[in-house]
Amino acid sequence: MHEDVISHDERDAMVRAALAEHGDSGITPRHTLFYFHGDGDHDDLNEVARRAGFVTSGSDDMTVLETTTAVDETSFAPISAMMQSWAAAFQLDYDGWECAVVTN
């Protein structure tokens, strides 16, 4: 791994830090999107993701998975690990996630 590559754990922490700047702890479940790109097997990813309860969309070389989840570190770590393992299994690039800020 190159020194200039940021790990998914670091990227996840950066998103959570941005949420925290807006007063969002991440514990409230919210609509969350996960992005996959590349020439791998999007059809199989879609099938596995649907079986796991995700809504799937995208085109030939991009898949977006949607769900409602908490994004605090404890809740989100297993989901992040699952996304990374799916990317590896289906030979795709996992490009991270995004969600709305929730403050309540």
Rank of each mutant, 00 (worst) to 15 (best):
V5A: 15
A87P: 00
T32D: 05
H31T: 12
A49G: 08
A17S: 14
E47L: 10
D4Y: 11
H8P: 02
A87H: 03
H22E: 15
A70Q: 02
D93F: 02
E21T: 12
G96C: 01
F34P: 08
L45I: 07
Y35Q: 11
H31C: 09
D41P: 08
S25I: 04
A77K: 03
D60A: 12
F90W: 02
D44V: 12
M62S: 09
W86D: 01
F36V: 03
D44T: 13
P78W: 00
L19E: 10
T63M: 10
P29D: 09
C99Q: 05
F76A: 05
W86G: 00
S85G: 03
Y35D: 13
G40H: 07
E47T: 07
M82S: 09
G38V: 07
E66P: 03
G26C: 07
D61V: 10
F54W: 11
E21R: 14
D39W: 06
V55A: 15
T63C: 11
A49F: 07
G53P: 04
W97N: 01
G26R: 06
Y94M: 03
D43Q: 13
V55Q: 14
R16E: 12
V48Q: 14
D41Y: 08
D60Y: 08
R30M: 07
F34K: 05
D12C: 08
P29F: 11
S85D: 11
F36G: 02
W97T: 01
F76E: 03
R30K: 12
A77T: 06
H37T: 09
H42P: 02
L19G: 10
V101C: 04
G58D: 09
A70W: 04
E21V: 11
D60Q: 07
M83N: 01
I79R: 03
I6L: 14
T56S: 09
T28V: 14
T69S: 02
F76M: 04
S85E: 12
L65H: 05
W97L: 00
V15W: 01
R51S: 14
L33F: 11
V5N: 15
L33I: 09
A70F: 10
E66W: 08
A89V: 00
T68R: 06
S59C: 07
H2C: 12
M1G: 15
F34N: 09
D4I: 05
A77Y: 01
F76G: 00
A13Q: 13
D39Q: 12
